[in-house]
Design a protein around this nucleic acid. Structure first.
Lengths: 126, 126
DNA sequence: TTATTATTTAAGCAAATTCTTAAATAAATT
DNA sequence: AATTTATTTAAGAATTTGCTTAAATAATAA
């Protein structure tokens, strides 16, 4: 960011700006963590995967690929991102690997599932 | 997606898979809408902007640029995305344009602000 | 031990994201 | 009318994302 091209508003409130800077600085970690979770959930395929895991308890890459109509490597790569973000966990059972939601970030995710199901109810009420 | 490279599990439950497909199909619009909001909020800069608008009521690009320490065009382009997504709205006042949160999607956003403030309280409790 | 099944990994590519810089609007001031 | 101020827009570059295809693991079955 260059110094010029900057507007120095006369009406700007330096106290407000300073307070805002403090608020941002005080929550830097939270913004980083939360935006991480949100950007993972903000992909339509991954949001569907999370919703399905909530509904079904656990699912394997093979079934997810079947349900979502996309290739297994594509699904697997989404699952890895979610796992890297500590949003889901894997449990092996023979050759099959079952993925499920981790408790850790469920509080952030639950409202999303509620939103989806609420929209569905509204639709059915018509 | 190619037909081969597909695993046809013997233990796969065709009824479960069919039900899952139905659930996804029934909520296609909701997934699209919600993932849109989440991907907008999933950028750290935009999440900060949304948080600041919630805290302050309204802010202009100039002040946001100052608070966040980034160029005005960069901020302006984030604001446009948020406006295109109906998450914020603009109100002109002379040369200054004030942005604020729209009521429409506040229900989805509110938990994020609560999360940030809760983390902050936890930190202060130490 | 060889083949099959379920999954992951890696390389490559097209598209999307996010910044920078420079130029264009648009309102207020001189 | 010309200048300043606040903001947007556009073009370009670096990075990230999300798929495809092919090859690599890893467990089970023949």
């Amino acid at each position: 960011m260059k110094g010029n091209n900057v507007c120095i508003r006369e009406q700007a409130d330096p106290v407000q700006i300073s307070n805002c800077r403090d608020k941002i600085a005080a929550n830097e970690r939270s913004f980083s963590q939360l935006s991480g979770i949100l950007s993972l959930s903000g992909n339509e395929v991954r949001l569907k995967i999370l919703y399905l895991l909530e509904e079904e308890g656990r699912l394997c890459p093979c079934d997810l690929s079947d349900i979502l109509g996309m290739s297994i490597p594509a699904v697997s790569q989404h699952l890895r991102k979610l796992k890297d973000g500590s949003i889901i966990e894997a449990a092996r059972e023979g050759q099959t690997i079952y993925y499920s939601l981790k408790e850790e970030h469920l509080k952030v995710l639950k409202p999303f599932f509620k939103y989806i199901n609420l929209q569905n109810l509204k639709k059915q009420a018509l």
